[in-house]
Simulated assay, not measured.
Amino acid sequence: MELRTPRTLLRPFQPSDFSDTFAFYQRADVCQFLLHDPWTDENAMQMFEEKLQKNNFSANNGLQLAVEFKQQVIGDISIFSTGMPDSVEIGYVFHPVYAGQGFAFETLQAVIDYLFETQKIHRIQAVLDKRNTASEKLCQRIGMRKEGDLKKDFWNKGMWTDTLIYGLLREDFYTT
């Protein structure tokens, strides 16, 4: 599966994407709101192998898409089932060098359109650390609605964190 936007190519990860991907996943500022710590020389290949294996979306297998710009991987889009019929969760990570340039918005619009039109998904959600204000603004910008604001509900990296849940229904996407 491949998706094109005006500036990017979204596609499953390839072995040659390792160094570009490691370049942003080894950064503490990138991983601060994620469920895992920054990649290290010791665990990076194992973490990357998991991305390579998630190359075809199904109810039992999530999809990891490399976001390529000018032959360089600048980000990562995750899509996985919530366990409910025709409902998925999306996640996204971008190299900070490309922040504020519209890449996340552009690629998520394409992914959402693909999920609703091609995969006939009913509902898309994003679950994020409330401290990640950039991610919250992106959810709002792509038309997602805040559905939950959970207080100190998740233990992550030695602390209780607040969780925001954003959602988007197929019918809402095409009327916004």
Rank of each mutant, 00 (worst) to 15 (best):
Q125V: 00
T107R: 03
K70Q: 14
N61D: 14
A28P: 15
K137G: 00
A99I: 00
N60M: 07
V97L: 06
T161L: 12
E136S: 09
K146L: 08
V67L: 10
L128E: 06
T5Q: 08
T5M: 05
D76S: 07
Q53R: 10
I77H: 05
A59C: 01
F18D: 06
D149G: 04
A66R: 02
C31S: 15
F69W: 15
G158F: 11
L128W: 07
L138H: 03
K152L: 12
A59V: 07
R4G: 06
V88A: 04
E106S: 04
Q26R: 02
I77A: 05
H95V: 03
W155P: 01
K51C: 09
M84V: 03
K51M: 09
R4W: 14
H36A: 01
L9R: 10
P85F: 06
E49D: 14
K130P: 14
I165T: 07
D153N: 15
P6E: 06
A104M: 01
D149M: 00
K120C: 08
K130G: 09
L35W: 10
N156S: 14
F69D: 13
D20M: 03
R123C: 07
Q64S: 13
Y25E: 01
R141Q: 12
L164G: 00
S58M: 12
E117H: 13
V93N: 10
F94P: 06
R7V: 04
Y174V: 08
L138A: 03
V88P: 02
E68L: 00
